[in-house]
Computed example of a mutant assay.
Amino acid sequence: MNGRVRIALTLVCLVTLTACGGAGTAMGPSDTPAPGATTSKSPSAESPPTADAPTPDASTPTAGQGLTAPTSTRPVEVTKDVADPPIVTGVRYGGHRGFDRVVIDLDGGVPGYAVRWVDQVVQDGSGEPIDVEGGAFLQITLRPAHAHTSEGEPTWTGGPVFHAGLPNVRDVVRNGDFEAVVSVAIALDHRAGFRVLEQRNPSRLVVDVAH
Rank of each mutant, 00 (worst) to 15 (best):
T25V: 15
T25L: 15
T25H: 13
T25A: 11
A26Q: 13
A26E: 15
A26Y: 15
M27E: 15
M27R: 05
M27W: 12
M27F: 14
M27A: 11
G28D: 12
P29A: 07
P29F: 03
P29D: 10
P29Q: 09
S30N: 14
S30W: 09
S30Q: 15
S30Y: 04
D31V: 01
D31R: 03
D31H: 07
T32L: 14
T32M: 12
T32S: 12
T32C: 12
T32D: 02
T32F: 00
P33W: 13
P33R: 05
P33C: 03
P33Y: 00
A34W: 08
A34K: 07
A34V: 01
A34P: 05
A34H: 00
P35A: 02
P35D: 06
P35K: 00
P35G: 00
G36K: 00
G36T: 03
G36W: 00
G36A: 05
G36D: 07
G36I: 06
A37R: 07
A37M: 02
A37N: 01
T38V: 07
T38A: 15
T38E: 03
T38K: 12
T39F: 00
T39I: 07
T39M: 10
S40V: 13
S40H: 13
S40C: 11
S40F: 02
S40A: 13
K41R: 10
K41M: 05
K41T: 09
K41H: 05
K41A: 04
K41V: 01
K41F: 09
K41Y: 04
S42K: 12
S42N: 15
S42H: 06
S42M: 09
S42F: 04
S42R: 08
S42Y: 08
S42C: 08
P43F: 09
P43N: 10
P43V: 08
P43Q: 10
P43M: 14
S44C: 03
S44N: 11
S44T: 11
S44A: 14
A45S: 12
A45H: 15
E46P: 01
E46G: 01
E46Q: 12
E46T: 11
E46M: 05
S47D: 12
S47K: 15
S47P: 02
P48K: 14
P48T: 06
P48H: 07
P48A: 10
P48E: 13
P48W: 09
P49N: 13
P49K: 12
P49I: 04
P49F: 03
P49Y: 13
T50H: 07
T50G: 07
A51Q: 05
A51C: 08
A51G: 00
A51T: 00
D52R: 01
D52P: 00
A53W: 02
A53T: 04
A53P: 00
A53M: 05
P54F: 02
P54E: 06
P54M: 11
T55A: 14
T55C: 02
P56V: 06
P56G: 06
P56A: 03
P56M: 05
